[in-house]
């Protein structure tokens, strides 16, 4: 019951994000970058549904363009982190021995940088731009994928059906590909889902700090950052982008809960 509600609400929110992002790539009500100084800081009207910003740009158009940027950045980042994490995690869990120890030492060192700190450090080196964010966040989040993948590989390979595969006479590599890896997919999917949420949040936080996608290209984070000085004059500028981030995260969290409940039914309605 609750699983279904979570899946429906979460799916709807994320579906909306995808639809808006897709639309924004070829159509927005106004050009999100066109400056119109005569229409600065207009409150919401039927002409500008969510008003205009300090340069007279239409907020709705910028939110839509921002959705496309955020979704793309998050998708590519998660893909990068998962690919990197799975390759290293499987290698470590499969080969074991000294290679495992070296990989895990490096991995644990990267995990010793909390939250977005590693991404902040990398952005300091790379400099703010879209590809830099993907690289920085991808590198910052792959260690947790490595952890999960390696732990899953190690736990799956202790199951009896893995031993059964050896008794049959299958080689180690075949056993790994046929029996171990397919049984590691579920936890990776769950992790990737929640990671999409973390990345959306981290990207908007970096942009909010001015270390993300640089202006004038709109993202939800840099829109919020630009809105801070106009808090008393134009509060709508601070409300809309944050609401977009929150709804996206809510969608991801609900979807993630639904997925986890499906895979581990004990937590749910039972």
């Amino acid at each position: 019951m609750r699983v279904r509600a979570n899946a429906v609400i979460g799916g709807t929110l994320i579906g909306l994000l995808v639809a808006v992002s897709a639309t924004a790539t070829f159509w927005t009500p106004y050009d999100p970058l066109r400056i119109n100084l005569r229409a600065r800081l207009r409150p919401p009207t039927d002409l500008f549904w969510l008003g205009t910003d300090e340069f007279g740009r239409d907020v709705v158009s910028r939110l839509m363009a921002g959705a496309a940027t955020s979704a793309l950045v998050a998708l590519l980042t998660v893909a990068a982190a998962v690919i990197l994490g799975v390759v290293i995690g499987v290698l470590a869990g499969f080969v074991r021995g000294w290679l495992d120890r070296v990989l895990m030492a490096v991995n644990d060192t990267l995990l010793a940088f909390p939250g977005i700190l590693l991404a902040l450090g990398l952005m300091a080196v790379i400099g703010p731009n879209k590809w830099g964010i993907i690289l920085a966040l991808g590198l910052a989040y792959s260690p947790s994928v490595v952890r999960v993948v390696r732990a899953t590989v190690l736990s799956v390979r202790e199951r009896e059906y893995i031993e059964a595969s050896r008794v049959i006479g299958n080689s180690e590599v075949y056993t790994m590909a046929r029996h171990v890896l397919p049984n590691c997919v579920a936890p990776i999917v769950v992790l990737a889902t929640s990671m999409f949420g973390w990345v959306v949040l981290a990207e908007s936080a970096l942009s909010f700090l001015g270390l993300g996608v640089p202006p004038p290209a709109p993202t939800w984070g840099n829109m919020l950052s630009a809105a801070r000085p106009y808090l008393d004059q134009a509060p709508w500028l601070s409300i809309a982008p944050g609401l977009c981030i929150a709804l996206t995260l809510l969608g991801i969290n609900l979807l993630g809960d639904a997925l986890r409940d499906k895979l581990d039914p004990r937590m749910g309605a039972a």
């Binding site: 199951r159 009896e160 059906y161 031993e163 059964a164 595969s165 008794v167 029996h179 397919p182 049984n183």
Partner: peptide, 14 residues
């Protein structure tokens, strides 16, 4: 060949 004790974990669930 080997037959295992726990029929719940000796078969690949997928």
């Amino acid at each position: 060949q080997l037959v295992f004790q726990d029929p719940y974990s000796s078969l690949d669930p997928r």
